[in-house]
Each structure stands twice: as structure tokens, then as C-alpha cells.
Amino acid sequence: MIMEVNSSWKDRLFACANGGLLILFSLAMVFPIYYTIVLSFTDSTEYYTRDLILWPHQWSLDAYKYLLGNGLFVNSLMVSVFLATVGTALSLLVTGGLAYAISCRRLRFRKTMMFMILLTFLFTPGLVPVYLIVRNLGLIDSVWSLILPSLTSGWYVLLMKGFFDGIPDSLDEAARIDGCTEISVFWRIIIPLSLPAIVAFGLFFAVGYWNTYFNGIMFINQQSKWPLQVLLQNMLVDPTTMGGGEQNVSLQMNRQLPTETLKMAAVVIATIPIMLVYPFLQKHFATGAMVGSVKE
């Protein structure tokens, strides 16, 4: 905590305005979420016949029963959890390793590597060649097809390098004098020092993996290996939202369009687990992670 030496009225006014603004802001963010959750528990008939529902007359678990009652649900959940854990760990390792290497100024070919990474950020290959590579690696219908092609990106590597650059050089020099090799400097000094950044990146990766959708559609044919988002989307088939139109309308066979309450429940199920991760990571964003090691 920072000591407030001269807590004047100006400061207090600032704190109030600042806090007030933030609270207003949070409310604007929270209302739609609240609405989503409430709707997911609303009886679907009530949803369609009442104007605005801030609190349902009739609570209903139907939407959840339908979604969770799918025999594949647990399967897909496991796939998604696997992706969000193993995938995130691998991504951090690959991104961190590369970012650390190119943050060392004396490294040969460093600039070449950096420019090459930057180019991949700007030139995005089409879907077809990536599909062919995944197929040629024999990864179709394997969960690895959901991890390997999205291990990292130029954006993550360059950004993480920015964090490593911010670490004072005095620290790792000191470590090296103590006889540390590059690897142990990386493990013992760099990683702990950049913990807030690593946690942030871990969160990015985890959310990315959790939301795996398009690759799931492209690379996974067997339903038992579908990640959660693909399963939910399939249960909520609504081909008319993106384009489609007249032709599709007549051809959706006997399947009903998903009700709005069902969609909301799917959102809740798909996002709550990953949202709960954040508060656990939050403490790592607290200030002062670095100070301790400087003093040692």
C-alpha cells in the first residue's frame, strides 16, 4: 500500500469521482450480463410474451436441462478443460522461450527472427493451406489439432518480448555472475519477475483455448472430441444468423430455431467456468511482484 502523506480534499474529490465513474462503468457492463443470466432461467413462453424481464415470474431450469442433458456434454467439457490447461501450458512455454531468446540483444539472427515473426502477424495464410498441413500431419480428429496450430502468434511473442525487455539487466547479470546458465536465468529470474505478465498471457491463452470453435469445426469430425463451444453451437443451430436467408428457411427440416432462453443458457454455461478463473489470478496483478527480488 502506498502511504497517503497529504490526503487533501483534492485527493478525496478525485477518489470519489474516480470511484464513481468506475462504478457507473461497471454497471453498464454488468446489466446485460445480469439480463443474460436472468433470461437463461426464465420460462421460454414467458420470455416471448412479456416485454422486459428483470425478474422472472416463473423460474425455469428447462434450458439448462436441455443443454446439460446432452450425452456428449461431459465429454466436450473434458476436451475444453484439456485444451485450456495443457494448451495454455504449452503456449506459455513456446511463447516465453521464443520471446526470451529474442529479447537477448546479443543473440545472432535475432533481428531476422523478429522480422519473420512480425511478417506472420501481418500476412495471414488462408484456411485451406492450414487445413492441408493439419491433415498431412495426421492431426485430423486429434485434440492436438486444436492446440498445435494455435500455440502462439506474432502478437503474443512480440508483446511478451516487450515485458522481458522491461526487466532491468542488472538482475540477470547478477545471476549470471553467480554461475547461472541461460536456462536457469530464464527459470529462476525471468519467469518469477515477469509473473504478472505470464499470468496475463496465461489468461489470454486459456480463454483462447476455451473458446476454440472454428478449428474445432474444421479439424474435428468425431462428435466425441468436439470442444464445448462446438457442441453448444451445434445444439443452437441457427443458420440464418450469418447470411443464409430464404433458402435455408425452408430447409431446416423439422428442427426448431433455438429459443432465446436456450441461447442465453448456452452463453452462461460456456463462459462461467472460464470467467471464474480470473479472480484466482487477480492477486498476481497486485503491485510489488518485482520489488522483493531487487532487494535480495
Binding site: L93, V94, T95, G97, L98, A99, Y100, A101, I102, C104, R106, L107, R108, M113, L148, L151, T152, V157, T181, E182, I183, F186
Partner: peptide, 14 residues
């Protein structure tokens, strides 16, 4: 710098 290259290798391969 061989260790650094080892660290970078998986990313480069990717």
C-alpha cells in the same frame, strides 16, 4: 547461446 536457441526452437518450428 545454444540454450537460447533450444528455448526458441519450438516457437520457430511453429
Amino acid at each position: 547461446d545454444r540454450y537460447l536457441y533450444v528455448l526458441a526452437l519450438p516457437g520457430i518450428l511453429f
